[in-house]
Design a protein around this nucleic acid. Sequence first.
RNA 1: GCGCCCGUAGCUCAGUAGGAUAGAGCGGGUGCCUCCUAAGCACCAGGUCGGAGGUUCGAAUCCUCCCGGGCGCACCA
Length: 539
Amino acid sequence: MREMIPLGGFLNFVYEPAYLAAAASTPPKPFPKRPGKIAVEHTSVNPNKELHIGHLRNVALGDAVARILDYAGFEVEVENYIDDTGRQAAESLFAIARYGEPPKEGEKYDHYAGRLYVRLHQELGEEGNKAVLEPEIREVLRRLEAGELRGEIEKILRAQLATMWRLGAEYDVLLWESDIVREGLLEKALALLKETPYVFAPQEGKYKGALVFDTSKFIPGLEDPYLVLVRSDGTATYTAKDIALQFWKMGLLAGLKFKPYDTQPSGRALYTSHPEGKPMPFGRASATINVIDVRQSYPQQVLKAALSALGREDLAKAHVHLAYETVLLEGKPLSGRKGHVVSVDALIQEAVARARAIVAEKNPDHPDPELAAEQVGIGAIRFAMVKTEPRRQIDFRWDQALSFEGDAGPYLQYAHARAASILRKAREKGLDPEAPLPEGAEKAATPYEAELAKALLGFPEAVEKSAAEPTPHLLAAYLLDLAAAWNAYYNAKQGGLPATPVLAAPGELRELRLRLVFTVKETLRQGLSLLGVPAPEVM
RNA sequence: GCGCCCGUAGCUCAGUAGGAUAGAGCGGGUGCCUCCUAAGCACCAGGUCGGAGGUUCGAAUCCUCCCGGGCGCACCA
């Protein structure tokens, strides 16, 4: 520290540039391991149609949070719930069987399923059709619950996974709803609950014949605190299955079996629950995070209530609903029926096409323009989805989401590529940016280096805050600040001449600056990676 | 009706465990490529932080009420 200046009732500490520069000359490292396993469930898209931009927010948010928690030292298990016994999946499969037409040339299977699903709903909307078709849909539902149509669901799921993987999102395990039911977890969960005074079957009144959960002790203020778990016709509600899943996640129930499913693009293994699998150490988490939109707040409260009903207040507290607001498209709610939707695949295609045009314009000599276009296109849309606080609505606008200027993913990527370019040139000159700072070189630091160093040193705190909330938008804001500080440093002028050249800097200042540029590049790369945004070496 | 969330510059948003002249981007205006990528940088204009009370030495931030907007309150998933 150099001096303290009292001003307006505050003490201002002025640090020595050398001290700051030395502190910022080492790239950040992942946090030390912490106890506890966190299960992060995200995506969990109905396996019956293609993803749209509402799902995109879920995937981007969930994937970023999982990456941040992992970096922050937690053991993280990423789970994707496959609702293969739901109404929507049944309707898509029924539609495919009913219309019997193959996918169009080049049509992705999830888009194909979604198209026929919409067609079925048009037919169902016509007079008298519902009564005729309903028994047939119910038969599909029954076969789904028996696990007979798993292969059909998988065709759709595979197509959806291709989209998630292209976005850079990966998972550890797929949890199939039909497995949860068939392996008896639902029954076990209900048995546990029936031992409590809160779950019972009323003998009379509007809930006669059903199994209900009296949540009044846990969720005060409800007009009707009774929640149906098993309908009077004997079928379980979605919430009941969700409770069973939650109990399994937290180790209150066992019984699921697993087998390898696929190897994901990064090389990470993906497993799936499966009746013919074997027991594996999935689940048994000490904390759970469900990434689900805010409209599911009540069912998520019920999950906590169910844990409380078992006397497990500790587990109820350890469950977090990461509730995010819905996505609007050009100011209006998404609507499949009105055709007011954009699929993630179409969005990616458009983003990459625009990026391709800009790469060709800005850098016609790019060694791999297609790679850069993909990275920039994906980066732009992923950053757009995580830069806003989750509980705010996002108004998706094409011009903003695909902006390659200003507060956007490409701005960060550009800052990264710039740093990478300097390091590349340094290596061509025989310099080693990764070599430790020579003894005493930090003394060459000027106020320019001090400013940049201050920005660099904020990284761990930004990660910690993002992990604690949890929300990626705090990290996103930090990275924008860091990139701005770096760009300002890069562009600094004195008397019309560059004030902070790196490669042409005199004496030890060159080593110091090179080392700081290396830290900038590594910090940006790491930060972008935590948001799932690719970090191009050249763009 | 009951409950939860949001309201900050023309637009889109940061900032809210109380603290210094409230910050970005887009849009508008002006400069900067004989200099490591101008997808960048510097500067200007633009705000009664939805409104009114209150707590406090101090409030965008905490409390109360009100006004806008969104969402949830099914034997639907």
